[in-house]
Design a protein around this nucleic acid. Structure first.
Lengths: 345, 345
DNA sequence: TATATTTGCGTTTACGTTAACGCACAGTAC
DNA sequence: GTACTGTGCGTTAACGTAAACGCAAATATA
């Protein structure tokens, strides 16, 4: 069903149909009605190829992420997914334009976001880790299509949010800790960065799992690797709690904490659970310094969000507004090897 | 960079450039060389919109799957992913044409496959669960693009195989059994269908995990729900092995086995691990009849395979030939709830 | 009444690619 | 010599959509 066919059925020209479809006016009410009824009846769907050929514009998606290497690789995994989607979509005239911001510096998200949006991008992919600034930024561009990854932003209407339930993730980490360390003892939940919503929710979920489990004592603390004495802090904690039996790190820094634990000679008594399968964490798992990882599929998040913005912007599709990423459990037994080992036994 | 620009740079017409690009002959060797060098230099990529508009043909992907309801929903989950991809791609002139076959009947795959391919599909998505017939089918259509899901087919060159390592899946199930049932005892691996490659490999992986674990005895058996006495068989097994402590079902039929175990009053002594998060299995997990599921992301497999065929056929991309699906662990704590519960606390 | 302006429509061009077609100029056959 | 055949190119018409343009007739303004 093409515009020409509709035009023929309605006894008008394609120009008139086009004006009706795009509500550009200069059409008699009666004609509008006739054309619309034919469209409804036959279920017209514009030809995406013809449409985009005619418009023949590059569809640029702005990407605004925290410094890619600020947290050992979590954001870099997001970026890898984004790049993969962008590469696949490049023959469809989709491209990305990325800027990073420093989430530890107030105003950085807003400044970088404005720099990005001044370049007139067609859509925005944003990690709203500084909620107030993200809201201020979006308020300036009310007609912009945007999507969130990592976490949602209340009171906004994104094309799509690709997120994971952090409380549930922490709760699941609790269950895995319980399985891996059935003997009870003292458990420690560690945050390594400035408090973020996802981090504190994970701690909350973890603690809540053990709230009714006898034989376990739970604590939570913050460790900062920049310019402090994390080794000393951890050593003190071990000395005060000789029955330490497990550590849960709510960020991707478990491999750093695991190093400390190994240095203190405490690995054998400590089950280590962390977040996200970044390269260093996978390596630490292969070295048996880390026992379990919880993953939020960061590549998938970035990949999916780009595709959803593309579908909205170029295909006029209305994607699901919330995509909830499953919480993956990674043990040494399902840590991905090289992809093709299966086919070459 | 368009064909017209290349033509101008090479001092030839667009027709000549087109003939070079499509190797349609009637071009002087010197001209071919000149055009090719300009293309290489400037990195020409054809405009996918223009290309597909001109060709303006429906791209039909034939889908050949085992009877959707033959195995409690595993194939149906695959189909859901396929449908989702097809829906998303419908404005890009992609459609699917599905036929089911009965994997228990010899010749069914071949017959149905031929019926499907006679309708001149542009690509084929196939679950090669009957290897010999699948090979015979593909041999008849040497120029056809095809992709595999569920399992690979040796000695063929598919556009893409979306698969999972079944041995590793069974091995992981072993690890989870070990965690969930640390007390040792007799473990039983159950196959419910006619022997398939994936099933036997999973059993192998599971048994191999426990090969060096003292305190565990492992057995494997087949149970058939159609017209036999599965309850009696299982009862006999329990009576002969009073220390039964775990069952691993290598198919999606764990919920059926769980029913039997509950009927026999043996659930409390038996850890139940199965495959695939079909609706009945999720329900059984919520009812605490099933303790753990291993998932091979069937929706993802179908979805991905359709997209890869589309990318090959319409975007001329060369996707990865093997996509190895991660092995997911599903516990009650990460069984997906309704997607939007997270945003509405 | 004469001149603008608006309304309602049809016509046309362009987007980049594909592939059929046309045409001049060779070389070959009789 | 004429009549073919083949080679190497240029030209052109689509594909479906978007949007500018043109042009009457109707309405408004002077």
């Amino acid at each position: 069903m093409t515009i020409a066919e509709i035009a023929k059925l309605a006894n008008v020209s394609i120009g008139t149909v086009d004006r009706v479809l795009h509500e550009r006016g200069r059409v008699a009410p009666k004609t509008v009605e006739k054309v619309m009824s034919i469209i409804e009846e036959h279920g017209y769907q514009p030809n995406a190829y013809a449409r985009n050929l005619k418009l023949s514009k590059q569809f640029t998606i702005g990407v605004l992420l925290p410094l890619l290497h600020s947290e050992y690789g979590y954001w870099n995994l997001m970026y890898e997914g984004i790049l993969k989607a962008a590469k696949e979509l490049s023959p469809l005239a989709v491209s990305i334009d990325m800027l990073e911001f420093d989430r530890t510096k107030g105003g950085s998200l807003l400044t970088q976001g404005r720099r990005l949006l001044e370049k007139s991008v067609d859509a925005l992919l944003l990690a709203p880790v500084v909620p107030a600034e993200a809201k201020a930024l979006l308020a300036d561009y009310p007609s912009l299509d945007y999507a969130f990854i990592d976490s949602p932003l209340p009171d906004t209407i994104p094309v799509c949010s690709v997120i994971q339930n952090p409380y549930q993730g922490g709760y699941l980490a609790g269950r895995m800790m319980h399985l891996l360390q059935p003997g009870g003892g003292t458990l420690l939940a560690i945050q390594t960065h400035r408090t973020a919503y996802n981090s504190s929710e994970r701690v909350r979920g973890f603690l809540s799992y053990f709230a009714d489990k006898p034989g376990y004592q739970t604590y939570d603390m913050e460790i900062h690797f920049a310019g402090e004495n994390p080794l000393g802090d951890l050593d003190t904690f071990y000395r005060n709690h000789p029955d330490m039996s497990g550590i849960f790190v709510v960020s991707d820094a478990i491999h750093r904490v695991a190093e400390l634990v190994v240095q203190l000679g405490r690995k054998s008594q400590t089950v280590m659970i962390g977040y996200d399968a970044i390269a260093q964490n996978c390596k630490a798992m292969r070295n048996k310094q880390v026992d379990c990882l919880i993953s939020q599929r960061p590549e998938f998040q970035g990949y999916t969000a780009i595709y959803q913005l593309y579908r909205k912007g170029l295909l006029n599709q209305l994607p699901e507004t919330t995509i909830c990423v499953p919480i993956d459990i990674i043990l040494p037994e399902n840590l991905m090897e090289e992809p093709d080992t299966y086919l070459k036994p």
